[in-house]
């Protein structure tokens, strides 16, 4: 397992998608903060990093990273026993975690540089550190979901389309509308549905709650991040193991 993680980390820094997506994010955040934006540096960075763009990049990266391994055929070099196949899948999750960290650091740096010379305050760093931690965890869950979705689809078009839809939480909006409709149709269910609302516990719904300035339910975000990562890891491992490699 550790060997596969080491290989994946070496590979991460030799993957073009890492550099292209990080540069795109950096330029975008830098230009936006240069043109305008109010508040402290951490407030601005928090606003950008929580906007859904980072999640979208993570989903696309997870898809491209898996696809590159399969399309190039390099997967053939990694082993083929059942236990090994599970590890091959799981060993990509630390890469997604690391990629999240890189994106968050790059985004923060771009915001800071973009606001330099405007006399903006740095802001509450402790609150920002918490924000980054939870963003990383929820981003890892989201990326793991797309590692698994890629294994189901075994192509990159559908997962990338789904990433764009999911990062904007369109599926959450749909689910929320369905929940309202059900509650209207069956009023007896309404209190239970309000207490355990499903659309509010999606990975992206919880990601949207994470904020530097507004208090959020840390425990609920943590639970969704952990449960999401575990559920999608198990799904991905199972699909990867059960299906023929080639």
């Amino acid at each position: 397992m550790l060997n596969l993680i080491k290989m994946n980390i070496s590979r991460l820094f030799r993957t073009k998608a890492l550099y292209t997506t990080t540069i795109i994010e950096f330029i975008l955040f830098f230009l936006i903060t240069m043109v305008g934006g109010e508040g402290s540096v951490v407030e601005m960075a928090g606003e950008f990093l929580g906007s859904g763009l980072v999640l979208m990049l993570v989903g696309i990266f997870a898809t491209v990273y898996s696809d590159e391994e399969r399309k190039s055929g390099f997967l053939k070099n990694l082993g083929s026993s059942k236990g090994r196949k599970r590890l091959i899948f799981v060993s990509k999750i630390p890469v997604i975690f690391l990629y999240n960290v890189i994106l968050l650091i790059a985004g923060t740096a771009a915001t800071y540089i973009g606001m330099m010379g405007r006399g903006a305050a740095i802001g509450n760093l402790a609150s920002f550190a918490g924000f980054l931690l939870f963003e990383t965890l929820i981003g890892t869950a989201f990326g793991t979901a797309f590692l698994a979705i890629y294994e189901v689809a075994r192509g990159n078009v559908m997962p990338i389309i789904l990433t764009i839809i999911a990062a904007g939480n369109l599926h959450g909006t749909l689910l929320s509308l369905a929940e309202v409709k059900i509650a209207q149709m069956i009023p007896a269910l309404a209190p239970a549905m309000e207490a355990q609302i499903l659309s509010g516990n999606l990975i992206v719904s919880r990601a949207q709650e994470i904020s530097v300035t507004i208090p959020f339910d840390h425990f609920a975000v943590l639970v969704v991040a952990i449960v999401g990562t575990v559920v999608y890891a198990v799904l991905g491992m199972t699909v990867f193991e059960k299906r023929d490699t080639f």
């Binding site: 550790l2 070496s10 030799r14 190039s72 055929g73 390099f74 997967l75 990694l78 080639f246």
Partner: peptide, 25 residues
């Protein structure tokens, strides 16, 4: 070596070898 060699085209021969060797420990 099944069908075609499994290699990353943007890496050198050594880098490809290094990745596989790392994966195998």
């Amino acid at each position: 070596l099944i069908e075609s060699p499994g290699i990353y085209g943007h890496l050198t021969a050594f880098e490809n070898m290094m990745l596989k060797a790392k994966a195998q420990g």
